[in-house]
């Protein structure tokens, strides 16, 4: 009897190991759903936006890499261009309370105002749950979800990893390329890249 039990336990263990292998978000599969509160107290779920393209942008206002893209106007410009085309742009902050980039809701609204940013909403992920769910590693770290809820891009904002504003001009923007391709019904050529930036301050 004891042996049978052991065998059963090993079988279950094997199944569990196999099952847990796919915890990270995978392109071509459904992006995991989540619900977060924004800086104006409103709740947003990813599933609310079925039928639309959704961009998830991990950000931290004090990270030099994020500053590069906001101070150069690159990120606000992207947000404006695509939200006007009907894309939902969710900027997510996963900084733990007390860590760098952990702002009050008013603070985030002020940031949006100061930088002329155009996100659909700034989502507060203070316990880092959604950040871990998506395995967000850096700020910025970008994800693009298609109208069916399928993840079609994950990785860097562009192809020049640097904190230097001067590099924005020459860089190829991966998020823009992914959105443009997907909106034209074409496959995304660079669908997975290594994100660069500061670590997410979990």
């Amino acid at each position: 009897m004891f042996r049978i039990k052991q065998v059963l336990i090993s079988v279950v263990a094997v199944l569990l190991i196999c099952g847990s292998a796919g915890a990270q978000v995978v392109n071509g599969q459904a992006a995991p759903d989540f619900t977060l509160t924004d800086s104006n107290g409103q709740k947003h779920s990813l599933s609310d936006y079925k039928g639309k393209f959704v961009v998830l942008e991990w950000f931290n206002p004090d990270c030099p890499f994020v500053k590069k893209h906001y101070n150069s106007g690159n990120m606000p410009q992207l947000q404006k261009e695509y939200t006007l085309k009907g894309v939902i742009w969710l900027s997510i902050n996963s900084s733990a309370p007390g860590k760098q980039g952990s702002y009050t809701p008013q603070g985030f609204n002020q940031f949006v105002k100061d930088k002329g940013a155009f996100p659909t909403a700034i989502l507060l992920d203070t316990d880092g749950k959604v950040g871990h769910l998506y395995d967000a590693q850096t700020t910025p770290h970008m994800f693009v979800v298609d109208p069916k809820g399928i993840l079609i891009y994950q990785g860097a904002i562009d192809d020049v990893p640097s904190a230097d504003i001067a590099d924005v001009k020459t860089a190829k923007n991966y998020v823009k390329a992914a959105l443009d391709a997907a909106m034209n019904g074409e496959p995304v050529s660079m669908a997975i890249t290594k994100s660069y930036g500061c670590s997410v301050k979990y």
């Binding site: 004090d62 990270c63 030099p64 890499f65 860590k99 760098q100 640097s162 904190a163 230097d164 500061c198 670590s199 301050k201």
Partner: peptide, 14 residues
């Protein structure tokens, strides 16, 4: 020379 120094937070140098 460009570099990035980090503790918990990061500062770029040039």
């Amino acid at each position: 020379v460009k570099w990035l120094a980090c503790q918990d937070t990061c500062v770029p140098g040039k």
